[in-house]
Amino acid sequence: MTAAIEHQAELHSKLSLRAVSKHFPSGAHPVHALDRVSLEVGESEFVCLVGPSGCGKSTLLNIIAGLERADEGEVLSDGSPVNSPGRDRMVMFQESALFPWLDVRRNVLFGLRLKPGLTRDERRHVADFYLRLVGLEKFARSYVHELSGGMKQRVALARALAPNPRVLLMDEPFAALDALTREQLYGDLQRIWQQRKKTIVFVTHNVREAACLGDRVILFSRNPGRIREQFQINLPRPRDINSIELARYATEITAALRSHGRDATAEGPA
């Protein structure tokens, strides 16, 4: 039953961004963070937003999340306009944003407790399911400070997935991790995405990461923040970040990034 519904939903857009603009007043020169950005993201699609720092990609993610308002344009989630945060769109931040006063399981339960219609046992069952999914069921009673950076982001992922959102918004979630941990999480994220069939919008300034994870990579330029180019990544999954085919895509995207921005580099300014 669900498969049929999901198949049908694929014909529609999960997220529609229509001419979204955003300015930040900053002294004499207001920053034009986003300039009429339009984008369609399909059901279960994995889209990566790439661009130099200050190109407005994180702002765009916040607008989709409902944490910030667009000055002009609108965002539709499943056809209805986004004005505030909602459980259909969960966010994962660069810092894990886990609550230190709660243990790991209670962190995952936080969003579930706010979701109506679940009994205590059901909530606990769901929380444990997602902790198993990210491989941390043994750490359910641990506190946040006892976890490594990679483990924290796994808990954050479990917390974001637990209320079963349709869309997962990820804002450079792996940027603060070491390379080895990151590669492990690429594998995990791809596996989980294929299992849970979420629509994912993933912001990064790491081109390789984008090519490894995304069905589609959207290239942004800055000042004003605009979509410059889109790349379809036609590689089978799971993808290995070190494969040659992937490197070819990454090279192509990096070249495009360079040609668009004066000082825009793949890594962005320090």
Binding site: P85, R87, R89, M90, V91, A97, F99, F110, L114, K115
Partner: peptide
């Protein structure tokens, strides 16, 4: 209190 806590809570419906 780091603002990100309140933001994260908002996205979860708090």
């Amino acid at each position: 209190v780091p603002p990100i806590y309140a933001r994260a809570a908002r996205t979860m419906g708090s």
